[in-house]
Amino acid sequence: MIDTRIVSFLTLIECKSYTKAAQQLHLTQPAISHQIRQLEEEFQVKIFHKSKKSLILTPEGEILEKYAHRMMSVYNSTHQALEDAKNHLRRFVIATTPTAGEYYIPQLLAAYCSEHSDVRINLITDSINNIYNKLKLYEADFAIIDGRLTSDRYHSILLDTDYLCLIISPKHPLAKRSSVKMSELRDEKFILRSKEAGTREIFESYLESQRDSIRNYRILIETDSLATIKELVMSNMGVSIMSHNACKEDEQKGRLKTIPIMNSTMIREINLVYPKDFQHVDVLLELKKTYSKLH
């Protein structure tokens, strides 16, 4: 059973008030204060800075918070796993990046669950940095990301490869071109993913490899919404750099035009990423097999 002091500690951080935390947990304020003092005595640290106005974690308090979240995650996962075992079910929390989550993965997971009636999946979409954090805190069992593995804490299985290309409106003057040079796009209005997105990182790395810079281009809008980017490009409000797979359907229906960039090396991998202690690698291999059937 999870330590009640940990529950009180995390609730206090969430509520930012001893009074509100006590109300939420149906405890008295002195009881919450006593539990925090017990944690401080056990670990020989100060958890919060002394401040009458706000609760600010000390560096040691931040470490405790990180591991407290991990403890809660493991506890909740254990509870769910035992419940699933009673019902002969296997449940997985899968984290995915926006591009993969919107265009590659839903069909794959639906097909896999149809073939395996004992599997239940909870799919969460987040940025690549947050996904690695969820894996570290055991808040996700494994991840499907559009990008390469960047940490030696995990293993990966290559699911597919894709490439980044220019996307424009069919009404754009470049729409009839079979390819384009980046130097021809200096005056275009770009609508791009945010700086934290894997697509943006690959694009900027490519520019640097060509002794170019993102600063040489006009960025009109930055957003994490792929739908917003495509909608604006379809309306001929600007151009973008995007995964080719993410635009296939729109191109087939004549809503967008994709154009390869000359001398581009913007190859993008789609990977299954999992912690080294993950116990169900067979599931990942089955997912890869299912993906191959669909493509």
Results as ranks from 00 to 15, higher is better:
Q279V: 06
I124A: 10
F48C: 05
I221D: 07
A21R: 03
M1H: 11
A100D: 04
T58C: 06
P275Y: 13
I221F: 11
L27E: 08
T161I: 14
K16N: 11
I267Q: 15
T19F: 08
T223K: 06
S33T: 12
S169L: 11
K195D: 14
I145K: 03
M182A: 07
Q35Y: 09
I94S: 03
N245R: 11
D141S: 03
A111L: 02
M234H: 11
P106D: 07
K276P: 02
K86G: 07
I144Y: 00
E41N: 12
S77M: 06
G147L: 10
T11M: 15
K195S: 13
A21K: 00
R70T: 15
T58G: 06
S169I: 07
N122Q: 11
A143H: 01
K189E: 13
K46T: 11
S179L: 04
F203Y: 08
M72T: 12
Q279Y: 04
T150Q: 05
A68R: 05
Y154G: 04
E60K: 15
Y112S: 12
Y138L: 08
L55M: 14
V281E: 15
F48V: 06
E201T: 06
D160Y: 04
P30R: 14
V180N: 05
L294W: 04
H34P: 00
T4M: 05
P98S: 11
M71L: 13
H79G: 01
T11R: 11
H295T: 08
Q35V: 01
I261F: 12
F190P: 02
Y18P: 12
V180S: 02
Q24V: 06
M262W: 04
E249G: 01
I32L: 10
L256D: 05
Q252M: 14
F92K: 05
I241H: 05
Y217E: 06
T28L: 12
F9A: 09
Q29R: 15
I219A: 08
Y274L: 09
Y132M: 07
R91K: 14
L64R: 13
L207E: 03
H280R: 08
I6G: 12
N263D: 13
L109D: 05
E251K: 08
C247M: 04
L109C: 07
V93I: 15
K257C: 09
P98M: 08
K46H: 14
S151D: 10
T223H: 09
L27A: 07
N271P: 00
V45Q: 12
L166M: 00
K20T: 03
R200Y: 15
T96M: 02
L55Y: 07
N133E: 11
I241D: 05
L25N: 04
Y217K: 10
N122E: 12
L272P: 02
M262I: 14
L226V: 03
I2Q: 13
M242E: 14
F9P: 02
A246Q: 00
L137S: 09
S17G: 07
E196A: 05
R193D: 03
I36F: 13
T228I: 09
R218L: 06
A100F: 00
R37K: 15
S117T: 08
A246M: 02
K20E: 10
K181D: 13
G238E: 03
E222W: 02
I157L: 15
E249F: 01
K171P: 00
T150K: 06
R120K: 10
K134C: 03
Q38N: 13
E188Q: 14
L137R: 09
V283E: 07
E208N: 11
T28V: 06
